[in-house]
Write a protein that binds this DNA or RNA. Structure first.
Lengths: 219, 219
DNA sequence: CTCAATAAACTGACACTGTCCATTTTAACG
DNA sequence: CGTTAAAATGGACAGTGTCAGTTTATTGAG
């Protein structure tokens, strides 16, 4: 779960090979340090704590230094979200690899990965879906979102036996269930959802069985 | 769908009977006007546009006047959310009344009401679940949230024929599906969800049939 | 090696926000 | 009518995002 290593191949820029500094660059890799600090603030204080000035302060640069790498706050949050999204995409894709001949297990693994990611790093998960904070049309965001989505789609497509008519809607239904439960829980809604220890395993079990039901339904 | 009328009996204060002004009160019903203006800003500019100073400006009072009625911004947003939540609770309860002997239809009506409310007034719906903006432990919020939740629960409890073992989890699953799809759509996620006109009716139909499946499942 | 070019980083400023404070205004009541 | 207490005011403060002008450091050409 080393998010730092993920930073290195984000945005199509391989920072490992970028050893030379560009003109005027006094700081080593300010862009990546800002992202790292932004992730730290996100984890510890939530998205409210991720301010341009705080990120700059914790990195030890002037308050306007980030502007050279992220023209606006939305750009900074979008870049952070891109890292997080890539992380989630990697995890889900990894979870279902090798299970291509067992679609049911693969879907369970997909859902389980989402649950784990969301409950391990709730602030990261929540950032991904805040439309007013990040640029959802950002190409990297779109790409990584598509990776997660198509991972789920591919599982449904493999179901040759079933005469499935509307794969996309099935995927949306499955994802609605997963995402809905996670959102509800992270937002602290529903009285029954407050007791995490005893309820979470039971809820997860039922949700997984319901998802399996969606998968096996004959439309 | 007159939200203004709803303002009158919120927070246990019946403002209709409160004709006399209290000491020092120069403005007619500033508290209610602030709420009304807050709702207007929420609808037109989203939650980001709801600032204490903007609400005060549009109401024609000093920037610090709202502090007498809402000590903090979270209190203002919480009061707005309480109005919205009460509205949603009223709509859902109203939608299922008279359908107590037809649980399937009632659940469909419940879901349909949530869909309609969310797509008619997306900013209001989204405000309800922003934990970091509103005080989820507010008694009015909790009460109205409970009203929505117990409305759904009552429908599942009426199903005497079915040997349902875990009503709460079924309710959570149904609500996860509804809330998950709505959130996904309002956040603009998933490529397939972008074409509203053609996809929304189809998605809704399938989701409703899936919800029906949850209702009829034998645990 | 020298030095202009250039991108990065810095300092300063502006408008805006939420919140606190002291002050003034206003309506109700003895 | 005067007292009183709540409401509303204006000012101030720290914090924010963003913009502008300036300085600095690195690069690469002469």
């Amino acid at each position: 779960m080393d998010s730092v290593s993920l930073l290195s191949d984000m945005d199509g820029v391989n920072l490992k090979t970028k050893q030379k500094r560009t003109a005027g660059q006094k700081h080593g890799d300010l862009r990546i340090e800002l992202l790292r600090e932004g992730l730290a603030l996100l984890d510890t204080q939530g998205v409210e704590g991720v301010t341009i000035r705080a990120v700059a302060r914790n990195t030890g640069v002037a308050h306007s230094a980030p502007a050279n790498h992220f023209p606006t706050k939305q750009a900074l949050l979008t870049a952070i979200a891109a890292v997080v999204f890539a992380n989630l995409a990697d995890l889900t894709v990894k979870a279902i690899t090798g299970l291509s001949d067992k679609p049911e297990q693969a879907i369970q693994a997909f859902a389980e990965t989402c649950f784990q990611f969301a409950f391990d790093t709730p602030n990261r998960y929540q950032l991904l879906w805040q439309r007013q904070l990040i640029d959802q049309d950002d190409p990297v965001i779109a790409k990584e979102m598509e990776r997660v989505y198509s991972a789920l789609l591919s599982l449904l497509r493999q179901d040759h036996a079933n005469h499935r008519v509307d794969i996309e809607t099935d995927a949306i239904a499955i994802w609605s269930m997963i995402h809905g439960y996670i959102s509800m829980r992270l937002d602290g809604n529903l009285v029954a959802a407050k007791d995490t220890v005893t309820n979470l395993p039971r809820h997860k079990a039922i949700l997984l069985s319901l998802i399996d039901g969606i998968y096996h339904r004959d439309s």
